[in-house]
């Protein structure tokens, strides 16, 4: 596999993050699960996240067995599936939302495989710009990694606190858009405290790549976002938004507004 990190005019995600970096701003990546709490409110949430300051929206494709997710996102996936949400339904939702910010599909591999080989083209046509696959680490499946890496979507790769340096370099060489740095060992979910060694983790990634670095897993509160913004290019907030949306879309939008304010007032 050759390097696919070169930015082209179609790299909407990379361009957006580069523009933020030029302006000295930090990216707010907001996650929601497609179809949660139901289709209508999911659509309202997508638009609300964009309108209240999200720079990038990660749309979770609900999966029956989400290994990398904690209880909040597990329950949101379950609820979305019970409401009949599918990958095709997720793409229709993104298309209908017609967002003015880049959209990254956040999926497990199995629904992507089941959707067929033209799913990346269909996603691009629906207004998706990037794709992130939680259970497809570098080298796990070269053929499918090539499919994702050479397709129309920017293939965002994840790195973990356990990833050794030489592997970090190899992963980031194959990534596009941004590098998703998992902040801590474990699954998605809110944390009271950020890991003490997070600045060093960010520095380790910074040493091997020029791609923007966004930090996720365990980031939920505005002051945490602000603290991460001192070191990273952006933050990803998921479970806290999903938990707020469990009860009210407005509450999730208010959280995004507070996160935006915190990130901009560093």
């Amino acid at each position: 596999m050759g390097s696919v990190s070169a930015t082209t005019s179609s790299d909407v995600l990379a361009d957006r993050l580069a523009a933020l970096r030029r302006d000295g701003r930090r990216a707010l990546v907001a996650y929601c699960t497609a179809g949660h709490p139901d289709r209508a409110r999911s659509l309202a949430l997508l638009r609300g996240l964009a309108a209240n300051g999200a720079d990038v929206i990660e749309v979770g494709v609900p999966f029956s067995d989400p290994l990398a997710d904690g209880p909040v996102i597990q329950r949101s996936s379950q609820r979305a599936l019970e409401g009949g949400m599918t990958l095709a339904g997720t793409l229709a939702l993104v298309q209908e939302a017609a967002l003015d910010v880049p959209v990254v599909l956040f999926s497990y591999l199995n629904p992507l495989i089941a959707a067929g080989t033209d799913v990346l083209e269909r996603a691009a046509a629906a207004g998706v710009h990037g794709v992130l696959v939680t259970d497809l680490p570098l080298g796990a499946d070269p053929e499918r990694e090539r499919w994702l890496g050479e397709g129309p979507l920017e293939f965002v790769r994840l790195v973990a606190p356990t990833t050794p340096a030489e592997r970090l370099a190899a992963i980031t060489a194959h990534g596009r858009g941004f590098v998703y740095l998992i902040s801590r060992l474990g699954v998605t979910g809110e944390s009271a405290e950020l890991p003490a060694d997070l600045p060093e983790s960010i520095a380790r990634v910074r040493a091997v790549t020029d791609l923007p670095i966004c930090v996720g897993f365990g980031v939920s509160r505005p002051e945490q976002a602000r603290a991460i913004g001192a070191h990273a290019d952006g933050v990803v907030v998921g479970s806290a938004i999903v938990r707020a949306a469990d009860t009210r879309v407005d509450a999730a939008c208010a959280l995004v507004r507070d996160l935006r304010t915190a990130l901009d007032s560093r």
């Binding site: 259970d135 680490p137 499946d141 973990a160 356990t162 050794p164």
Partner: peptide
Amino acid sequence: GGRYVPETLIPA
């Protein structure tokens, strides 16, 4: 077969 797991587990 293969190793379709979160990146965190690869070193383990």
